[in-house]
């Protein structure tokens, strides 16, 4: 495959994304715009997870926790704004310029505390313990009875305002998500190129060597854990706005697994890989039942996961470099 193929696909995707609402409208499928926003949000979450998995070699199976914290901060602030009550002595708000930064801040704080504990371990322990703490966050949200508990929390005020922008407009929201994803990708590209980013790569390749060189690897890993958590918190804040609803479901452990899948499916350790992965994963999830329906397979339409699961297994067993690697052709040595 030609080397330029990847560039063509990427460009095509960017152009498609830029004009997506227009095209959808013209094609009479304006209802696709919110789904597309959702894909962008999950892409953002996957990109943030990739900072851990791909660039630092930390396999976190609990990334949905930070997505959930971000979503709940936005949801809870909106709840108090509607009710006119206070939380920690402060009023609620539906202003995104306040709630979204707070969502980022809180998820970063949670990531700091949980990361400080999880990073005392490594390898298999790290996988298990990130999953366990994410489950703890899940149960905490379930026990928040004031905020709907199990049933979740409707944001009766609808999506936030974002300064002059009204996020309840589907078009505006789509372009905000696109801009945020683009900005986050630029930030990641910058981050990876810095001294800090290089150190992370070195830790992934050989942690013992970095320790011998006198590098405090724990501090580096904690820093990137917090940054990744903040990125997921941002995605969570957008997710709450997308649905005007938050529930413990956002933190369900399968969500963490799905995010991990998106990263690997797209190609871990590459800038755009997780974006491809998120697009492919969510499209597959959305259209596999439709496909079976079109083929007249009633049973598989309802039970599409019976195909989806093995499909994922096969991809994991045989395609180790992800979609990005597939598109890029042979690795340059």
């Amino acid at each position: 495959m030609p080397d330029g193929f990847l560039r063509i696909v990427t460009l095509a995707l960017v152009v498609l994304a830029l004009f997506f609402p227009l095209l959808a409208e013209a094609g009479g499928s304006a209802y696709l715009v919110p789904s597309a926003s959702r894909i962008l949000i999950y892409a953002l979450a996957a990109v943030s997870l990739n900072l851990l998995v791909g660039y630092t070699g930390l396999v976190s199976l609990g990334h949905a926790a930070y997505l959930g914290v971000g979503a709940y901060v936005v949801g809870i602030l909106s709840f108090h704004a509607v009710e006119g009550s206070t939380i920690f002595g402060l009023p609620g708000t539906v202003e995104g310029l306040v709630s979204i930064p707070l969502a980022i801040l809180f998820s970063a704080l949670v990531a700091l505390v949980l990361g400080a504990l999880c990073l005392r371990t490594s390898g298999i322990y790290f996988i298990m313990i990130t999953l366990a703490f994410a489950q703890m966050m899940f149960f905490i949200t379930v026990s928040l009875e004031r905020y709907g508990g199990d049933d979740g929390l409707f944001m009766y005020a609808g999506p936030n305002r974002l300064g002059p922008l009204d996020l309840s407009s589907e078009w505006t929201f789509f372009y905000v998500c696109l801009a945020v994803l683009f900005a986050f990708l630029l930030f990641c590209r910058y981050l990876v190129g810095t001294r800090f980013g290089r150190a992370l790569g070195a830790i992934r390749q050989n942690e013992a060597r970095m320790i011998t060189l006198g590098c405090n690897v724990y501090r580096y890993k904690l820093a990137i854990f917090v940054i990744a958590g903040a990125g997921a918190g941002l995605a969570g804040a957008l997710l709450a706005n997308q649905a005007s609803y938050v529930s413990p479901d956002v933190l369900h452990w399968t969500r963490s697994g799905e995010l991990l899948f998106m990263v690997i499916l797209g190609g871990s350790g590459t800038l755009l890989g997780p974006v491809f992965g998120a697009v492919a994963f969510l499209l597959l999830e959305e259209y596999l039942p439709v496909l079976f329906d079109a083929a007249g397979l009633e049973l598989l339409k309802e039970h599409w996961r019976i195909v989806f699961g093995p499909l994922l297994i096969i991809v994991m067993l045989f395609n180790r470099r992800g979609l990005y690697g597939l598109l890029a052709g042979r690795p340059r040595q």
Partner: peptide, 16 residues
Amino acid sequence: HLDQVLVTFGLILFVN
């Protein structure tokens, strides 16, 4: 371990 996690995750979807 990453591959193991993802393959067995796919397996869970299948079994469920």
